[in-house]
């Protein structure tokens, strides 16, 4: 379980979040939702060091996460960044290899385990045909997949994804949801920042809602709907509808 306890978080020298407490259960998909500027990215970036925790604690499976060495953190929790700048001029395979960085010694030689993890990640994301192409030559959606493959190659039990559906077309978004479900089936814990509320309700086991830089509440999708939490924060109405493919949500 990943747990924030009374965490004060700042970006640079600017305090952004105060007294944040939230839990993300192991083996589940948790969607972190909220309006723009509610502090979702700042909260999660405290996990990779882009924002810093000035007070409070973060526990990962009971251990003080912030006390772990950076290399050790990178073996336990991987991070899919929302903002990455322009695409690198390296092959997809080269990018995926970077996911093995935490496991490489000083010589940075690839071990058979590294090669195996890389190939699995490339297969998993359906990038076998593109493995030798430059990332910068791929479409935005394919680039997202390449970064996801890098994250998968990192083989961490906890996977944080900050808006991974960006740049993806509708089929791409559908495939991403299937990939995330498949990762959960493999025992991964996925924490997902997602703006599409309908998809969050469909894919998540639990939802953590942020509003005006605070945790507004959390629960299963059903609990969040029933309590009116999502409707209040997003100022919308949500209508569950039975379809042949299961429950879908109409939001207006």
């Amino acid at each position: 379980m990943l747990e924030f306890k009374n965490a004060d978080i700042r970006v640079g020298r600017t305090p952004i979040l105060q007294g944040i407490s939230a839990t993300f259960e192991k083996g589940r998909i948790t969607a972190l939702v909220g309006l723009n500027g509610s502090g979702k990215t700042t909260l999660l970036q405290s996990l990779n060091g882009l924002s810093s925790v000035t007070d409070g604690q973060i526990f990962l499976d009971g251990e003080d996460y912030l006390a772990l060495a950076p290399g050790e953190r990178a073996k336990r929790l991987s991070f899919f960044s929302q903002l990455r700048g322009s695409a690198p001029n390296i092959s997809v395979r080269g990018l995926v290899e970077h996911g093995r960085f935490p496991y490489m010694g000083f010589s940075r030689k690839r071990s058979p385990e590294d090669l195996d993890a890389m190939e699995k990640a490339i297969d998993f994301t359906g990038l076998s045909q593109e493995a030798d192409r430059l990332v910068s030559e791929l479409s935005g959606g394919m680039q997202q997949r390449a970064y996801l493959a890098m994250q998968i190659a990192q083989e961490c039990p906890y996977m944080v994804m900050d808006e991974p559906q960006n740049f993806l077309d509708l089929p791409g978004q559908r495939e991403l949801l299937l990939l995330i479900r498949a990762l959960k089936e493999e025992g991964k814990t996925v924490i997902l920042v997602i703006h599409d509320l309908e998809k969050a309700l469909r894919i998540a086991d639990r939802i953590v809602v942020m509003d005006r830089r605070r945790i507004a509440g959390s629960g299963t999708p059903g609990e969040c709907l029933e309590s009116g939490l999502l409707q209040k924060v997003f100022d919308c109405r949500i209508h569950p509808a039975e379809t042949e493919e299961g429950i879908r949500y109409l939001i207006d």
């Binding site: 882009l50 060495a69 990455r84 970077h98 935490p102 940075r108």
Partner: peptide
């Protein structure tokens, strides 16, 4: 190799333990 990782951007590089 560290320089290669840094070129991916600070957030990604830090996530990889650099």
């Amino acid at each position: 190799k560290a320089l290669n990782i840094m070129s991916l951007g600070d957030g990604t590089a830090m996530s990889l333990g650099l």
